[in-house]
Amino acid sequence: MDWGAIIQNLFRGFIGEPFIYFSLAAMGLNMHYGYTGLLNFGQAVFMAAGAYGLSMAVVTLGLNFWWGLLLGIVVFPLLLALIMGVPTLRLRADYLAIVTIAASEMFRIIARSPSLDRWTGSSDGLTAFANRFYDFNPFDKQKRYFFGLFIGNQMWVVLIGWIVLSTVALIVWMTMRSPWGRVLRAIREDEDAARSLGKNAYWFKMQALMIGGMFGALGGMFRAIGTQSAQPQNFITDVTFFAWVALILGGAARVGGPIAGAAILYGILNFTDVFLRQLVENGYMPEVIMDGTQVGQVRFMMIGLGLILLAIYRPQGIFGTKEEMALDER
């Protein structure tokens, strides 16, 4: 057993790339669910919008990197929010849930369809769209940085990720202390009350869906840049629930909740992942129980189980308080 590798992975989980992707996605969900009460179960599609917005702009359409950013962070998520929001935001909360989860499935089918291969690259996805990003990399590709956790390219992704993450957190913090955030919270508590006081609840919900979606798109775009590929597999339906677990774990309706949640979640996931792999590789794990390919499935089980246990036993998360926001009220 290589305990050094296990510990290193634990720390990479706390602050590394997946932490960045998913805390951004979870911050978007926090805007949706934590502050506005929207049940978005399709955050993975918003993430995909960021990833595919950038990669399709560069690879399929031949535009430059900056247009890709615009398409991925602004255009695609906004369109997506309109498509999912216009029919559902007037209706009961679970309709949005159904439509968003249906959108995830539609994304999966469309993105994998060979008939659209020349636009999306189908199952293999798209690659080679992020060169421009790495051109700016000031770090030496061969060297390790930050206590040896990241090599040069990773360090660059992680560094920009941290900066974006802090900016998004600042935006959330500022808007939630403003009258705008107050209206969102009012809608979360009681939409009719907000409406009776002259607030256009539909439009505010739409704004929240759009902005939270853009945060998610940022997360997805980082995932595409970090892995240098945009693949359907990275944005399937179940990916959404990694962000959900991160959100509930840290505590919804808190600025730092999703960040803390994502850090803890990826610490745990990375730890068990490497730990189990090492058990398998070193022959401590009987093959009847688990082989190498099954290790990857365990993390999904943990996500499912995590959702169940959190929702039942700790709906306010680790850092949240019941008075302010908890999953089990309403």
């Binding site: 179940d238 509930i248 996500i303 959702l307 169940i308």
Partner: peptide, 15 residues
């Protein structure tokens, strides 16, 4: 709440 129940059902679905 129904939202909590919804989330639990999704958890079970994934699990």
């Amino acid at each position: 709440s129904l939202v909590a129940a919804l989330v639990v059902s999704i958890g079970f679905s994934i699990f």
